[in-house]
Design a binder for these strands. Structure first.
Lengths: 180, 180
DNA sequence: GTTGATTATGCAATTTTTTGCATATATCCT
DNA sequence: AGGATATATGCAAAAAATTGCATAATCAAC
């Protein structure tokens, strides 16, 4: 029950279109909050119906028209109220881990291959995070203040990716050495 | 689309009731795959309809009757087929991180309190994991082999909890020092 | 003696998410 | 010329998940 709040939080930092929000999700919050563009658009309609967001339509030459959304007072109020509530438990769905539970039925090499694939993905993510982190350094002090807490979520991402990479090395070694 | 497979994987390791599965989820896979008892029961019915699992009804004095589920050949086959498919992207919903995105609207002390609460939870989880890990040492070598990969998922959990605790200390310090 | 936790299963309504489809233009690559 | 990628938005059907409710017996604690 809070894709809603994720969207409000994004618009609170910077107004934008549904398309923008999806892109920003993928670059930041998306690593802790997954969503699809269909969902985002649907939720934006709902938020608009509820008076939480407003938009101005912007005609564009060449590209499709867009709707630049921004928070209304009611939206900001709702966001503030939500921030004061204790956060609910997180939810996670990680198929790779489920697979390991049944991994003894798989082929050892196939398993190693898949782990290598994931290692690659996590390496790329870690790199992306590093780049984002260095971008933070170039912000004005005012901007840095605004993005201080969002930046901290990036820090968690960095810690997590390190954990993934450490673990992937560990599990690959175990599989090579101990699994027949 | 794979609570289904998570359940098959659990039953593959050890037969059990819906109630058992939920409990085992909470102790192991649950940290990478969240679910509720209602969902598990529903999915078990569906798996039964599809011939993936079978059960024997066990009458119990005092307690309600239970259904001990186990994999059928078709179920094991389906599990094996699924293991060979590449794992899909993980999904995560972590409200605390969304909250940080909007955190500048909250009260600093309230935020610190919430972070302290989460720190406590992660401390407890880390402790639980340590206990589970030391239990692994007492298994027979046969059992150890069977549980080798599930054990590795526990290892990831341990790495993650360490990452959480490191990060929580970091973010609390930043909030205390840099946020007004 | 009653309150709460544990064991054990489930239905129904609602909300959320996924999956598949659909449209339209511009640009870059081969 | 054809294909992929990016911009930009959305509907509809189906699947999955959540939330609330319901039952029922035992055991331990207070």
């Amino acid at each position: 029950m809070s894709l809603k709040h994720a969207i409000l939080a994004m618009l609170d930092l910077e107004k934008g279109t549904g398309y923008d929000i999806v892109k920003r999700f993928n670059l930041s919050i998306g690593h802790f909050w997954s969503s699809s563009h269909q969902q985002v658009y649907k939720e934006l309609h709902k938020l608009h119906d509820d008076g939480m967001v407003e938009f101005e339509a912007v005609e564009q030459a060449g590209k499709p028209d867009k709707k630049v959304y921004y928070l209304t007072d009611a939206g900001l109020k709702a966001l503030k109220a939500w921030v004061r509530q204790p956060a609910r438990a997180f939810k996670i769905k990680e198929p790779l881990l489920v697979k390991l539970f049944a991994g003894r039925h798989g082929d050892k090499d196939e398993l190693l291959e898949e782990l290598a694939r994931h290692e690659q993905l996590h390496r790329e993510t870690a790199e992306q995070y590093s780049k984002l982190e260095s971008q933070m350094e170039h912000l004005s002090s005012r901007q840095r203040k605004k993005y201080l807490l969002p930046y901290m979520t990036l820090r968690l991402g960095i810690h997590f990716e390190k954990a993934w990479l450490t673990w992937l090395a560990e599990v690959r070694k175990v599989i090579r050495d101990e699994l027949d």
